[in-house]
Write a protein that binds this DNA or RNA. Structure first.
Length: 555
RNA sequence: CGGGGCGUGGCGCAGCGGUAGCGCACGUGCUUUGGGAGCACGAGGUUGCGGGUUCGAAUCCCGCCGCCCCGACCA
């Protein structure tokens, strides 16, 4: 885990406090590394929140004694309910939790400090796994000469409508247009031709963290933006077997990222011909279920065969003294995964973040009225902070203390719940007197008192349990919304009325797949790897199928 | 690209011929603070742009521009 984010020192001036408080993710202590947050400002004229809502009416919630039962009351009222309009809910949450903003550029977003911190934790976890599996990070250019992109026929055709071109530079028209990379297969293949001569040069295992541009007609923050951040892995192998293993291995890395870090259960499988990456032999993907029961493709891994190496004329001399084209793979996971995290866990009160990637794992809300109370509470808070920064197992907890004195404790509760902080610790004069703190879980608002002395051991354990609980909750939700359909009428009814994943038989014909999509809006998300043998008849033409495939309406 | 809608302080809106107002947010002060506090005072707008009609245009007409929503691509 990364270093703890350090809390605001109570000694800060009130103006300082406000400034820091306005930038969650900022570190105010010299001890911790200050995250470099460029403060990006939405330019004037940007359309912000075209779908806004009237500001929340302050319904003064009745006061309740500490240690009470779990409240069903809805405290955050400025967010559209999921049940009312899931898309509006999503946009509200992204904007009000200050994850991202629209920008002056159509279809492009500004990722704000809190959103970027969430992406960074996800990215760092994945980067670690990519390195553990033997890959090195590299960088390739943003611009790709047209001639390179044109070499692989299926690739060109697939990406053409989405490519942005640079035709002028230096005050004149370029001899050859440059594509703003939609992905880097072409330029990488063209470059590594000079690096690969012998089987001894293989495998070549590379990964790039970069931005790509794909011109989109309809965009959504994080889920589909014209420019997005991602990693793209590119590898070259001496045998097809090795390339196939690599494709599987990296898909499983993505599965583990979702599983262990994001608490999102995913289904791994193979894409159909119509859904595969342009230029790939096969495409594998992980699919996750969002809380509106729709599917979201969250990561893809492609077996490229020799398509790109042949197009580029990459050859190596093998052990058997024969010249061969290497086999390639590529795999990518983007900022879309942030959208997945939001939609897989969030509720009507805002974000619900998995502790392992949450910018703040714990927020402390000190409560005081008189100056003497504040001093007493500050003492207890300092003790807790020191303990959380050096827990018994040596791991630091990312904790933030909200010392703002211009908003009420109740406001702070809502503020941090909207932002999905897993645990809230409330410490007031009554707690100090009792030598305890009140700990509240974001996901279910379960509220418990815990002795101050026990917190160093308690909090990390509670965060782990919380992480596990979130995964369990998501897995139960997915199970409850996965159905089987054995005939087309049932299928249509389930897709229409229930939504979710529908497991059904498909003969493998593109025509049947197409008809289902056109008539129901559902697509084959994947042909799952772990589907049990279960022979049946295709929904459309009755053709034989050995097992079921996963259908859903998707993002 | 076809259909629908909207452009008015930072955000959300009202005003629909007589020279711009409300809520939120913002600033200052006082009282507050264990589930989104209250009051008072204050600051903030060449009404998207350009033309026209009129004594007079945010308002009516024409033309641009921009954005949003709905239908064919994608991580």
């Amino acid at each position: 885990m990364r270093a703890a984010l350090v809390a605001d020192p109570p000694a800060a001036t009130s103006a300082d406090r406000r400034r820091w408080a306005a930038r969650p993710g900022s570190c105010s202590s010299g001890a911790a590394t200050a995250l470099p947050f460029p403060v990006m400002v939405g330019a004037p004229g940007a359309t912000i929140g075209a779908r806004g809502r009237p500001a929340g009416k302050r319904t003064r919630a009745s006061q309740r004694p500490v240690g009470g039962h779990v409240s069903q009351e809805r405290f955050v009222t400025s967010i559209t309910r999921q049940s009312e309009d899931f898309s509006a809910w999503y946009t509200d949450v992204v904007r009000k939790a200050e994850l991202a903003d629209y920008s002056p550029v159509r279809g492009c977003m500004v990722i704000r400090p809190y959103g970027y911190a969430l992406w960074e934790h996800t990215r760092d976890a994945l980067d670690g796994m990519i390195k553990e599996t033997g890959h090195s990070n590299v960088y390739f250019p943003l611009f790709i000469p047209k001639s390179l992109l044109d070499k692989e026929a299926e690739h060109v055709e697939g990406f053409n409508p989405q490519v942005a071109w640079v035709t002028h530079a230096g005050g004149k028209e370029l001899d050859e247009p440059l594509a703003v990379r939609p992905t880097s297969e072409a330029i990488i293949a063209a470059t590594v031709r000079d690096w690969i001569h012998s089987y001894r040069d293989l495998p070549l295992l590379m990964n790039l963290w970069n931005n790509v541009v794909r011109w989109e007609m309809r965009t959504r923050l994080f889920l589909r933006t014209t420019e997005f951040l991602w990693q793209e892995g590119h590898t070259f192998h001496a045998t097809e077997q090795e390339a196939l293993e690599e494709t599987d291995r990296m898909l499983d890395v993505y599965r583990r990222l979702c599983d262990e870090w994001l608490a999102i259960p995913v289904t791994s499988g193979r894409k159909t011909e119509s859904e595969k990456f342009p230029g790939a032999v096969t495409t594998l993907a992980i699919e996750a279920m969002m809380r509106d029961r729709r599917a979201l493709q969250s990561g893809t891994s492609h077996h490229l065969g020799q398509n790109f190496t042949r197009a580029e004329g990459i050859e190596f001399l093998d052990r058997d003294n024969l010249r061969k084209n290497p086999w390639g793979t590529s795999w990518g996971l983007s900022t879309r995964i942030v959208g997945a995290t939001i939609m897989a866990h969030g509720d009507d009160d805002g974000l619900v973040l998995p502790p392992r990637v949450a910018p703040y794992q714990v927020v402390v809300v000190p409560i005081w009225r008189r100056e003497e109370d504040r001093v007493a509470v500050a003492g207890a808070v300092e003790t807790v902070l020191a303990a959380l920064r050096s827990t018994p197992d040596g791991r630091a907890v990312r904790v933030h203390v909200d010392w703002r004195d211009d908003v009420s404790p109740g406001f702070k509760y809502s503020h941090w719940e909207l932002r999905g902080v897993p645990l809230r610790i409330e410490i007031g004069p009554r707690d100090v007197a009792a030598g305890q703190a009140v700990v509240v879980r974001r996901v279910d608002r379960v509220k418990e008192a815990a002795p101050l002395a026990a917190l160093p051991a308690e909090i990390p354990a509670r965060l782990e349990r919380y992480q596990a609980d979130l995964f369990e909750r998501a897995a139960r939700f997915r199970a409850a919304n996965t159905h089987a359909a054995d005939d087309y009428d049932t299928f249509r009814r389930v897709i229409e009325e229930e939504g979710g994943f529908v497991m059904a038989h498909w003969c493998g014909a593109a025509a049947c797949e197409k008809r289902i999509n056109e008539e129901t809006g559902a697509t084959i998300r994947v042909i799952p790897f772990d589907a049990p043998a279960d022979p049946g008849r295709c929904l459309i033409d009755g053709g034989a199928a050995t097992d079921r495939v996963l259908f859903a309406r998707a993002y």
